[in-house]
Simulated scan of single mutants.
Amino acid sequence: MSTLIGNTQASGVVSARRPSFFGLVQGELIKLSRQWMTWIMVLCLVAGTALLQVIIARFGSTQHDIQIQSPNFFYSEMDMTLLIMRAFGGIFLMILTAYLIGMEYQNGTVRIILARGVGRVQLLLAKFTALLVIAIELCVLGVLYNALLTLITLFALGGNLDIISKMSSSVWSNIGLYLISMLISFVVTILMAMTVTALGRSLAFGMSIALAWFAVDNIGTLFLRLGYMFTKQQFFLDITAYLLGPVLNVLPAKMLPQDVRVSQTFSPWIDISESRALVTILVYALVFAVVSIVITWKRDVHE
């Protein structure tokens, strides 16, 4: 009887001390905030954006667009600064994801966390939630920072901010659509990095595969184009519409009106609709989510 009572009391103590999901998320955010690597990457992103803004301000077309109060100024700002933010922000999130998951296995700290009553899938979802919070913060703070730099450019070149009040609501709506496409890119990037890191259970494996994924996707379109040129088989061009990197690259252009031009580097060699691009991205996201959860759930931690 005393043994039964003792076990019950011990079980109650473990249950009481089991971290909550929100506590786990907070712990992951604190963990990332204390890494020097995180802040170095943030500083690089801030400095790079500021440098790009200086380059934009030196364009002759920039001052001309401000003087005639053309919306092209804001679209140029959107295309260049947010493109850099989307590309380097994605790399930033891939590195953080690989670090947050891979280091737990590499250092063996995952066993300590699991010994406290945290489930493997619960821990994975907490890490994903923390990274999602960072992605949202990156979008919000990045927009505010770019807006500040834009205001400085407007005042330096135009002497006033009258152009803002004279822009139609469609301009701000289109910029909002671009931001939505950027957030979609961030989310699927996190899921991809989470999946490959959960598969390899190693920081080096997760980071190398995650960083190589989009490079292989994008450069692969060039080789597929060569394949079409040599064989004249449409298959080589069709397959580019199912590669994640090129589809993410073309998503902003498909979400925005046709008269709003945005950069499309390494896009699919065939034309795809907005709905097809979104469905393709959704399928990738679901596959990444299911694979990472199943792998984490089925594979025990022995190392």
Rank of each mutant, 00 (worst) to 15 (best):
T81Q: 14
L82F: 15
L82T: 09
L83G: 14
I84F: 14
M85F: 12
M85P: 04
F88T: 11
G90D: 10
G90N: 11
F92K: 06
F92H: 11
L93E: 14
I95E: 06
L96W: 03
L96C: 08
A98L: 06
Y99A: 12
L100R: 03
L100S: 15
I101L: 14
I101H: 06
G102D: 10
M103T: 12
M103D: 13
E104M: 08
Y105C: 11
Y105D: 12
Q106K: 15
Q106V: 13
Q106L: 09
T109W: 06
T109H: 04
V110F: 02
V110W: 02
R111K: 15
R111Y: 06
R111I: 02
I112R: 08
I113K: 00
I113A: 11
L114A: 01
L114H: 03
A115L: 05
R116W: 00
R116D: 01
R116P: 00
G117P: 00
V118A: 01
V118C: 00
G119V: 00
G119D: 06
L123G: 00
L123Y: 01
L124N: 02
L125Q: 02
L125F: 08
K127W: 04
F128M: 12
T129H: 03
T129G: 01
T129R: 04
A130L: 09
L131S: 06
L131A: 09
L132F: 11
I134Q: 08
I134D: 02
A135S: 13
I136R: 01
E137L: 13
L138F: 15
L138P: 03
C139H: 03
C139Y: 03
V140I: 15
V140M: 13
L141C: 12
G142H: 04
G142K: 02
G142N: 05
V143Q: 06
V143S: 10
L144R: 10
L144K: 12
L144C: 12
Y145N: 07
N146M: 10
A147H: 01
L148R: 07
L149K: 02
T150Y: 00
L151S: 09
I152S: 13
T153K: 01
T153L: 07
L154V: 10
A156F: 11
A156Q: 14
L157A: 15
G158K: 08
G158R: 08
G158N: 13
N160W: 09
L161W: 14
L161I: 14
D162P: 04
D162W: 08
I163R: 06
I164V: 15
S165E: 12
S165H: 11
K166M: 11
M167D: 01
M167G: 01
S169N: 06
W172G: 07
W172V: 04
W172N: 01
W172M: 07
I175D: 00
I175T: 05
I175Y: 02
G176M: 05
L177G: 05
L177W: 13
L179D: 01
L179A: 09
M182F: 03
M182N: 01
I184Y: 06
I184A: 11
I184F: 07
V187I: 15
V187K: 02
